[in-house]
Design a protein around this nucleic acid. Structure first.
Lengths: 128, 128
DNA sequence: TATACAATTCAACGTATGTTGAACTATTCG
DNA sequence: CGAATAGTTCAACATACGTTGAATTGTATA
């Protein structure tokens, strides 16, 4: 099949795509920041106070969240010193879709399902 | 409120719980192993061959997946050298539930929703 | 103009982690 | 018994990463 390698490559891409986002989210403090942002747009100083973390650390974690598009930033128009951070809903929905499709329990297959269906058995050949 | 700190602690626990699992999953090779296990129970040697990775590395990643209960192991009764690995469906379902509830797009709140609802405004006080 | 404030950037540190290669255990097969 | 097989464990390495403290940028305020 000609499309096989393409499909395989696409799956590889989406797998890397998913891993990259999970890596960004797989950190307790970033999860806390993310959760506060879910409750509403926040600035660095608010997050810093709420989580008792220095502003530069908040800034570091926010940049990671922004690097994968999950968080947006917008300067205050009346006072440009302030930057408001928010969850990018489209990015979050895309992540949910990818996660749900990759980790869907219905994907789990019993071992011996395809025995005899193919020249290559579902069980490993016990001899070389 | 008396239950507040308890609820906060519970949320902290589940947040750490979620972060721990995401950390285990946030690795491309572990995602590949997990995906193959979704297709059916596999032994180390099968995974090793399919992913072109040394058996000790597969073993290392499998132990990480097992450490959070997402993967089970079972020895072959007729030949104890073989160990069959499989996805723990209950653990996967629990993870899906936690992920879906934490990252549900409907949780996203607009910034100014609770203005005037509390003594503490949704906006940070611009002065000390 | 000098001070205060929001936020980022930079350098440095210790720790965690994926990968590699070799050694080791346990069981089956010739 | 000796060789082969499946799998783990151990030591070592380079890299990635979260945290800290200080310096820097840009804007508002007294």
């Amino acid at each position: 099949m000609l499309n096989y390698s393409v499909a395989a490559q696409l799956e590889t891409i989406s797998l890397e795509w998913l891993a990259e986002r999970l890596k960004v989210l797989a950190e307790p403090n970033r999860l806390r920041i993310f959760s506060l942002l879910m409750d509403g747009v926040r600035c660095n100083c608010e997050l810093s106070e709420a989580l008792a973390m220095p502003p530069n650390l908040i800034s570091h974690h926010l940049s990671k969240l922004r690097s994968v598009g999950l968080v947006d930033a917008e300067r205050d128009k009346s006072d440009p010193r302030w930057i408001y951070y928010s969850i990018n809903r489209a990015a979050l929905e895309a992540l949910n879709a990818a996660f749900g499709s990759f980790f869907a329990p219905d994907r789990i297959q019993p071992r011996w399902l395809t025995v005899g269906h193919n020249t290559r058995s579902a069980a490993p050949s016990r001899r070389a």
